[in-house]
């Protein structure tokens, strides 16, 4: 599958935006080090800096987000109180992207000043360390997931994520319109960002709009329409797991299209095999209906039904019986 792939870094300030978009799920507020908000986070990993604070700086993963829980904060308070600030000074000499204090704990003045001086941002969160790490891991896994962008349309049909590809002008957007009209959900038109997400069972692919400017669809001869205005907000979805690729072809009489549905073809995206159906387009073929049936077939396959197999078994047992009679 073509497309550009990549992975990025995000500025620290992006975490604040994500928090705001998620209705302050993480409950972040900036404590100090505002000058460092444009620092780059380059890893989805975390560090609990217990050892460095105690003076052991070997293997210190300083480029990771540092989580300061109750234990770390209590230790820092003790160090400041006893005027043993040497390790704290060393700690802040590293190029740390961000420190997050959990439980909304207050930090000593000394640390606040250090962080402002070195432009190392400190956030605080009302959450417990465990909860914060769980939430932010999910968010950062998503942000740092490997991705490709592909040319096509993405729909959710009976909760099956269907990527519709094909040459320009073959009728992808028109098919999408037909599918939305039949009650299915629109995710994006033209360019789809496909991410490889780690799950409990391995990896899966997730498709979402590349740029989230809104659910617009371009239909030749009509122009641009806003799907949510025309069909309702209920027909819009932000993302879906990618389960099936539908490749629209111009009808070619000599091409061997699948006529039984025994064999599956696959396309590989980011190293994951996704079933692919090639559907020939010609006048009189109702493409949205065909795509809907292909998605439904995927649902049935997962439930263990296979019409082609079922018919074949019937014919075989019929022939066997007939033979016995003869």
């Amino acid at each position: 599958m073509d497309g550009k792939s990549g992975i990025s870094s995000i500025p620290v300030s992006r975490l604040l935006e994500i928090d705001r978009d998620q209705d302050h799920l993480l409950g972040f507020s900036v404590v100090s080090g505002k000058d460092g908000l444009d620092k780059k986070i380059i890893s989805e990993e975390f560090n609990r800096p217990g050892l460095p604070l105690a003076g052991f700086f070997d293997c210190f993963a300083s480029r990771r987000i540092q989580i300061l829980g109750r234990g770390e904060v209590a230790f820092i308070e003790k160090l400041v109180k006893e005027n043993k600030t040497e390790t704290l000074d060393m700690f802040f000499n590293y190029d740390i992207p961000l420190c997050i204090v959990t439980h909304n704990s207050a930090l000593p003045r000394y640390i606040i000043n250090k962080s402002n001086e070195k432009s190392i941002p400190i956030f605080k969160s009302k959450l417990t360390s465990r909860r914060l790490i769980a939430l932010i891991s999910t968010i950062l896994d998503d942000v740092f997931a490997p991705f490709v962008t592909v040319h096509g349309n993405f729909m959710s049909i009976y909760n099956v994520g269907v990527l519709i590809t094909g040459k320009s002008g073959i009728g992808k957007s028109e098919s999408v319109l037909g599918l939305v009209e039949r009650g299915h959900k629109f995710i994006c038109d033209d360019i789809v960002k496909i991410k490889k997400i780690r799950t409990a069972h391995g990896f899966e692919l997730k498709g979402e709009p590349n740029l989230n400017y809104g659910p617009y669809l371009e239909i030749r001869g009509i122009g641009i329409i806003n799907v949510s205005q025309y069909f309702g907000e209920g027909r819009i979805l932000k993302s879906e797991k990618l389960d099936l690729i539908i490749d629209l072809h111009e009808w070619d009489g000599t091409y061997g299209y699948d006529r039984l549905g025994f064999e599956e073809k696959y396309d590989s995206i980011l190293g994951i095999q996704i079933p692919k159906k090639e559907i020939p387009v010609s006048p009189g073929r109702n493409i949205p209906l065909l795509i809907e049936v292909a998605a439904y077939r995927d649902v049935m396959r997962k439930l263990g039904y296979n019409s082609a197999q079922e018919l074949d078994n019937k014919i075989r047992s019929f022939m066997k019986k007939e033979k016995e009679v003869v």
Binding site: G253, G256, R259, L260, F262, A308, D312, I315, R316, M319
Partner: peptide, 17 residues
């Protein structure tokens, strides 16, 4: 196994040519 699904599809595809 006689003319079951796979042979039928081979035969139909050949005839279609």
């Amino acid at each position: 196994y006689g003319l079951h699904a796979r042979p039928s599809s081979l035969m139909a595809n050949l005839a279609s040519q």
